[in-house]
Simulated scan of single mutants.
Amino acid sequence: MTDAAARPSPFFHERVLWVRHWTDSLFSFATTRNEAFRFRSGEFVMIGLPPAEGEKPILRAYSIASPMWAEELEFYSIKVPDGPLTSKLQMIQPGDEILVGKKPTGTLVLDALKGGERLFLIGSGTGLAPWLSVARDPDTWSRFGQVIVVHSVRNVADLAYRELFESGLADDPLVGDEAPGRLVYYPTVTREPFRTQGRITERIRSGELFRDLGMQGCFDPARDRVMLCGSMAMIKETAELIEACGLKEGSNAEPGDYVLERAFVG
């Protein structure tokens, strides 16, 4: 037996259960979940497609969109026509094989935050993915009295999962009794007419976000906790605005007032 054959695989080999194409550039899919796979809501994992004989798999980091208790693993992705992975990943069908790394990680987890009253989950584009996990985790609702999901996109059609959040997760098996009345969904659109228009950073800087939510004009370090995921530019700019309000960045080692995923930001 060769060393390669004896070495355990760093991946679980899962099967695609369903695929949903939201638009020409956005899709979601779910896979089976190995019983040995454990993760915290909000973490990311490396995924890929089985490589051709003699080749190495092309892998990318994907936030897990399903909560930690779910029996399946859900992912939310963009479609990049010439992307090394997504150009092929967007063609998957139920029954196809997906490689899922065995070591999920990340800082977009409740463990990296201090306790508080309001939890802001701010994401742009597919940066919504970890909030799908966190918002459906019972621990979130036991720690915070209100959860505010802020999703910024270019076009109205890009508001994937809008129906889920607008219905307040009422049908969710574990948080359906907790989320309605305590969940606030705040979508913004930058390139089309919509009830809330403009970049989320602009709405924070102008105070429109806070006025719309019936709050004072800044995040409150004593009450508010924030998680950030999305484009690098949005995360960096929003983090600066958050720190200007007095909030401090947290980590797994030292919980704080807000967190971002530095594995994606650099």
Rank of each mutant, 00 (worst) to 15 (best):
G83L: 05
G83A: 07
P84D: 14
L85S: 03
L85R: 13
S87E: 06
S87H: 13
S87G: 12
S87A: 02
K88Y: 05
L89V: 08
Q90N: 13
I92R: 10
I92G: 07
Q93I: 02
Q93A: 12
P94N: 08
G95A: 12
G95H: 12
D96N: 11
D96M: 03
E97M: 05
I98R: 02
I98H: 01
L99R: 01
L99E: 01
V100W: 02
V100C: 00
V100P: 02
K102S: 10
K103N: 15
P104Y: 07
T105R: 10
T105P: 08
T107I: 09
T107V: 08
L108C: 08
L108F: 02
V109C: 01
V109N: 01
V109K: 04
V109L: 01
L110R: 15
L110A: 13
D111T: 08
D111P: 05
D111N: 09
A112T: 10
A112C: 10
A112I: 11
L113I: 06
L113G: 00
G115Y: 15
G116N: 07
L119D: 10
F120V: 15
L121A: 09
I122C: 06
S124P: 04
S124Q: 03
S124H: 05
S124T: 14
S124W: 00
G125A: 06
G125S: 13
G125F: 10
T126G: 15
T126N: 02
T126W: 05
T126L: 09
G127V: 15
G127M: 02
L128R: 00
L128M: 04
L128T: 04
P130R: 13
P130S: 09
W131T: 03
L132D: 04
L132V: 09
L132N: 12
S133V: 11
V134T: 07
A135S: 12
A135E: 04
R136H: 14
R136L: 14
D137K: 14
D137A: 02
D137Q: 07
P138K: 09
P138M: 15
P138W: 07
P138G: 08
P138V: 09
D139E: 11
T140S: 10
W141K: 12
W141P: 03
S142R: 15
F144E: 15
Q146F: 14
V147L: 10
I148F: 08
V149Y: 05
V149W: 03
V149Q: 11
V150Q: 00
H151M: 05
R154I: 08
R154L: 15
R154N: 11
N155M: 06
N155L: 06
N155Y: 08
N155V: 00
N155W: 10
D158S: 02
D158C: 04
D158V: 06
L159D: 00
L159N: 02
L159V: 00
L159G: 04
A160M: 00
R162A: 06
R162T: 07
L164P: 00
F165H: 14
F165N: 00
F165K: 07
E166V: 01
E166L: 05
E166F: 00
E166Y: 10
E166A: 15
S167H: 08
S167Q: 07
G168W: 04
A170R: 03
A170E: 06
D171P: 02
D171C: 08
D171Y: 00
D172T: 08
D172R: 06
D172G: 04
D172V: 06
